[in-house]
Computed example of a mutant assay.
Amino acid sequence: MKSLKGIRILLVDDEPHILQFLELGLMNEDYEVKSAPDGMSAVNLAYEFQPHVVILDIMMPGMDGFEVCRLLKKNGNNVAVIMLTAKDDVEDRVKGLTLGADDYVVKPFSFEELLARIQARLRNQFPSLFSEVAMGPFRLDDRRKEIIYRERVLELSPTEYELLKFLVINHGIVLSKTKILDKVWGYDFGGEENIVEVYIRSLREKLNDKEHTLIRTLRGAGYRVDLP
């Protein structure tokens, strides 16, 4: 996806060299970027700046990233929060996600990985910013609810459309059945996890993915779409 001018990103970290590195990289991608060195400044700046995405460090003096996330997500604000953590700690991840964080990245991380996660969040939460998104052999048109694969419009049910869109947008990332159910079927879905397998099988048939090279199964982990 080509980055677009007008997309606003707020960086929050108490380490100046990280802020400078990320600010330069994201501005080079044509994003509009502002930064804050602490939690209170971030909350005040977010109110004025109205960012689409917030890159938020967890471990900060004073107001930590968890409290900032809670305040940013208060009142149902549609801002995408990607949390940065220096610890690959499950408890940190769970706490952040519970407070409304949309994704997390463990330090140290590559800029390319962060950029991919930013773009995934934008496609998921702000599809109206893009009339059509091209990704490898796919073209996604969220306004028409159509997915074109190798110049062929796929005949998809509404659920198949949402599932394939979620897989393609997050290409290269392993998605568990639980995460797929939450994002595609909703948190209140009371059915069995096996429904995911049924829909994956149907998508593979429509994509002629007999060898499972497009939608890969990673045993015990979930599914991953690999794009050329």
Rank of each mutant, 00 (worst) to 15 (best):
E205N: 13
H171M: 01
D88L: 05
Y161I: 08
Y104E: 06
L97G: 05
F166T: 15
D13C: 10
E160C: 10
I55A: 01
E67R: 15
I82P: 02
R152V: 15
R152E: 15
D30Y: 13
E113D: 09
L114I: 00
P228M: 08
G100H: 12
I215Y: 06
T98C: 03
F138G: 01
H17N: 10
N75G: 04
G186W: 13
G96H: 09
L97T: 10
K145D: 00
V196K: 03
V106S: 01
E155A: 15
I169E: 15
E162R: 15
D209R: 02
Q125W: 09
I82N: 01
R224A: 07
E23T: 14
V68C: 12
E32R: 03
P228T: 07
T213S: 03
E197A: 03
S128P: 00
Y223F: 15
E160F: 12
L45A: 05
E48T: 08
L56T: 04
R219D: 00
G190S: 15
D14A: 08
A116Y: 04
V168E: 13
E211Q: 11
G25F: 14
E160A: 13
E15A: 12
V225G: 01
N77P: 00
A46V: 07
I118H: 02
G172L: 11
F21S: 08
R143G: 13
L227G: 07
L22A: 02
I180G: 04
L99H: 11
L227V: 15
D14S: 12
R123W: 09
R117S: 05
L56E: 03
E211F: 07
